[in-house]
């Protein structure tokens, strides 16, 4: 890139790619359809929202406790995903072991699996009569279903693969030269991981974590199947929206708007990652 370009021009070129400003109609028309299709439902939500008594309606609903539950469970699910998922991504990206491809396929399966199926699978494993759950119950008196812990488990199961896939991709794309240089200079493998690898993939790590968190926040199928639904204990925002739609559609719209607001906030927080074209995340 020529050094004579102003930073502003450099940014512009980075944004527009090759720099072309006009689009041929065969590409432009479907692209506009795409934009409308993705945006119009959100407009519908805004148009139908009962703005006048929004506050009283929200306060009277289960929104507060559902949102609180959703926020903390998806955050815990993300932390667990980071603690377990980053080492897993490293293992998949930086080592070679027999059956690696199978392991990768298995751990990314929840990505494509219908979440309800995930919920059923969790019940079969960790349910009260599941093959692990029955021992938890018998030996420790612990039953997971219908508890906030079950919500966290369901969300982690569904969301962690998003983090693993993002981080593994970043690890593969990262320049190994820095790590090799650090090793040459005598750094141990853990030191390299901590001081070189992690900072190198930092942006992707953050993007993966947010993606994971957002997926956990939106989790419905696995949660209602494995954790059930009880206000304040296992009824997360998406489940509250679903139920409210039957009893009180206005409340459902408002709850949806709250989730929309949270999602917009996430996008704004990630604006340097996603709202700018061409980022690897």
């Amino acid at each position: 890139m020529p050094t004579t370009l102003s930073p502003r021009e450099r940014t512009r070129r980075a944004r527009t790619g090759a720099g072309s400003r006009s689009a041929p109609v065969p590409l432009l028309a479907p692209a506009l359809v795409g934009i409308l299709f993705l945006v119009l439902p959100l407009v519908g939500l805004l148009l139908r929202a009962p703005w006048a008594d929004a506050w009283t309606s929200l306060r009277g609903s289960a929104a507060g406790e559902a949102l609180r539950l959703s926020l903390w469970t998806s955050t815990v699910a993300t932390v667990i995903s980071l603690l377990v998922g980053v080492p897993l991504a490293w293992l998949l990206a930086r080592t070679v072991f027999p059956g690696q491809r199978l392991v990768r396929a298995l751990v990314t399966l929840p990505l494509v699996l219908p979440p309800v199926v995930g919920g059923v699978a969790l019940l079969m494993a960790f349910g009260r009569s599941g093959f692990i759950g029955q021992h938890l119950d018998r030996w420790f008196g612990v039953t997971l279903p219908f508890t906030p812990a079950a919500v966290v488990i369901a969300e982690t199961f569904v969301a962690m693969p998003f983090l693993v896939v993002t981080v593994e991709g970043a690890l593969r794309a990262a320049d190994r030269g820095f790590e090799e240089a650090a090793e040459t200079l005598g750094a141990g493998r853990m030191t390299v991981f901590r001081r070189v690898t992690l900072p190198l993939i930092g942006p992707s790590l953050a993007a993966g974590a947010v993606l994971c968190w957002a997926r956990a926040l939106g989790e419905f199928g696995a949660t209602i199947t494995f954790a059930g639904s009880f206000p304040g204990r296992t009824q997360t925002m998406p489940i509250a929206v679903y139920y409210a739609l039957e009893a009180d559609p206005d409340a459902a719209i408002l709850l949806s708007l709250v989730l929309l607001l949270v999602s917009v906030a996430v996008l704004l927080a990630l604006r340097d990652r996603w709202l700018r074209a061409g980022s690897a995340a």
Partner: peptide, 21 residues
């Protein structure tokens, strides 16, 4: 104080069938 409020009666029944409640 139920542990879960299910979306329909068959969902309640399946929680019983599975031995979860």
């Amino acid at each position: 104080r139920p542990v879960t409020l299910e979306p329909n009666v068959k969902a309640v029944l399946s929680k019983v069938r599975l031995g979860e409640v």
